[in-house]
């Protein structure tokens, strides 16, 4: 049973289905071992946006507060998309490279260890 109920069949309303976001979708992005940001962020993006705009506009707008952000070597960054290793293509759209509604994107910057080398 998928919920304890008195009803014979009970279907819950999926409150965060993509249709509710008026043509946009959600994507979560977290910077591993940089806990100046207490958690990953939730972004509202167009599925047709390019990865470049996600990285250089959307992500830079919040992660850019970190003193290490300008020093990131993007060639060595390791990405995880929904838990799987992932190589983004900068000029392809999010939809075209499988970044779907409520996908989780994580990036790890191996040369950078955070403020005071403490993962901050």
């Amino acid at each position: 049973m998928t919920v304890k109920t008195t009803a014979a069949e009970y279907i819950g309303e999926v409150r965060d289905r993509v249709e509710n976001f008026h043509g946009n979708q959600l994507v979560y992005v977290g910077w591993d071992r940089h806990l100046m940001f207490c958690s990953a962020f939730t972004f509202l993006v167009a599925p047709a946006a390019s990865f470049r705009s996600l990285r250089d506009d959307v992500m830079a707008g919040v992660f850019g507060e970190h003193p290490e952000w300008p020093t990131i070597n993007w060639d060595s960054v390791r990405w995880l998309l929904d838990g799987q290793p992932f190589t983004p293509e900068l000029d392809k759209t999010l939809a075209d490279q499988g970044i779907g509604h409520k996908s989780l994107l994580r990036f790890d910057t191996p040369e950078l260890h955070g403020f005071m080398n403490a993962g901050v």
Binding site: G12, E13, R15, L26
Partner: peptide, 19 residues
């Protein structure tokens, strides 16, 4: 254990982004 219940979670961040 009870997905039909929790698919309905009213998550404040998502609600803001739904307008």
């Amino acid at each position: 254990d009870e997905p039909e219940k929790f698919v309905q979670s009213w998550l404040p961040v998502h609600q803001i982004l739904q307008g």
